[in-house]
């Protein structure tokens, strides 16, 4: 069910579950920011969960279907229009060749996933179709989709028209959103007061929020414990000898505005980190809009593993519901 791009939206890219295995060479995993939404959208249209789909941020694209099939839109909440007529989200929508999918303005969340029967079948790079624009890898010629692109799709599977993900299994951001952080890495570099403030303060998503990372502002600046500057680290108290950055790690350049690295993370650099957002909360970051209030909540390893198991259980229930 190939698609023709009439309008590309703001920044719409092909994404699947990513290309792990190359982070030691600076090539990030990539893949859908909101993985639960990608899995759900694929299951709805009868694709393997890890098939490639389109991820749009803030503003949806306008797409013409070049053959009959199914489409499903998950993730953020916004009006979904087929030839101008509103359609339900998190639902398999039957479409005919020549029909046009478009979108209204966002009501909540930040990113939608658009899956179509057969999945997007652009050429894979290093085992994934995910678009990594900085390295010009994957997607449509290594870039976001553009008006006039015709996007190929694969062999359709057996999706059921009208199938829907039960409301209770859909996930989106609350307000204020809570991100659970396991303290660690260079947490001991800041004072006990700064540690308290990090979790006590209310932060807001800054405009610099993309697939590489999300910046937050509004909390108190951090005070550092006195420390002799390590050789090779640089002169600022927030500098480390350049090291690796975990996905979800919270770096704080200059001790002022935390940045949480996401799927297209830079793999390393010279800023200290105070901890890491737990894996179960990474999808949620992909649904945060600039200016949204956010709180960081202290997590333990046991709590992180329990949340991870819970998240997996939700995906398992979606699988059952759509089986």
């Amino acid at each position: 069910m190939p698609l023709k791009v009439l309008k590309p939206g703001l920044l719409t890219t092909v994404q699947d579950l990513g290309r792990p295995g190359y982070f030691h060479l600076g090539i990030p995993m990539g893949g859908a920011m909101d993985r639960l939404s990608l899995r759900a959208a694929n299951l709805l249209v009868g694709n393997p969960e890890d098939a490639a789909a389109l991820e749009a941020v803030f503003l949806g694209p306008e797409l013409e279907f070049l053959s009959d099939g199914l489409v499903a839109v998950t993730g953020a909440d916004l009006p979904i229009l087929l030839d101008g007529e509103e359609q339900p989200g998190w639902t398999a929508i039957p479409v005919k060749a020549g029909q046009v999918l478009s979108f209204g303005y966002l009501r909540s969340g930040a990113r939608i996933v658009i899956a179509v029967s057969g999945g997007i079948a652009t050429e894979a790079a290093l085992g994934s179709r995910s678009t990594y624009a900085i390295g010009a890898l994957g997607g449509v010629d290594g870039r976001a989709i553009a008006a006039g692109d015709v996007i190929p799709t694969g062999e359709p599977g057996a999706g059921k028209p009208g199938a829907t993900v039960p409301e209770a299994l859909r996930r989106g951001p609350g307000s204020p959103a809570e991100l659970r952080v396991l303290p660690g890495l260079f947490w001991h570099w800041i004072t006990p007061d700064a540690q308290k403030h990090f979790f006590a303060d209310e932060w807001k998503v800054a405009p610099e929020a993309d697939r590489m990372g999300y910046r937050f502002k509004g909390g108190r600046p951090m005070e550092f414990e006195p420390r002799e500057r390590p050789f090779g680290a640089g002169s600022d108290p927030s500098n480390i000898v350049d090291g690796c950055y975990p996905y979800g790690s919270v770096q704080v350049p200059g001790g002022t505005e935390p940045i949480v690295l996401h799927r297209d993370a830079v793999s390393g650099g010279g800023y200290f980190m105070v901890g890491t957002v737990i894996s179960a909360d990474m999808d949620l970051i992909g649904q945060l809009q600039p200016h949204m209030p956010v709180r960081f909540v202290e997590a333990t390893m046991d709590g992180a593993l329990a949340a991870r198991a819970e998240r997996k259980a939700v995906v398992a229930r979606i699988r059952e519901a759509l089986a």
Partner: peptide
């Protein structure tokens, strides 16, 4: 040694470069 969330272990061999 430090855990970077539930999926990473960060190992600082030394704080300074050598």
């Amino acid at each position: 040694y430090s855990f970077g969330g539930d999926e990473h272990i960060f190992v600082e061999v030394d704080e300074e470069m050598s």
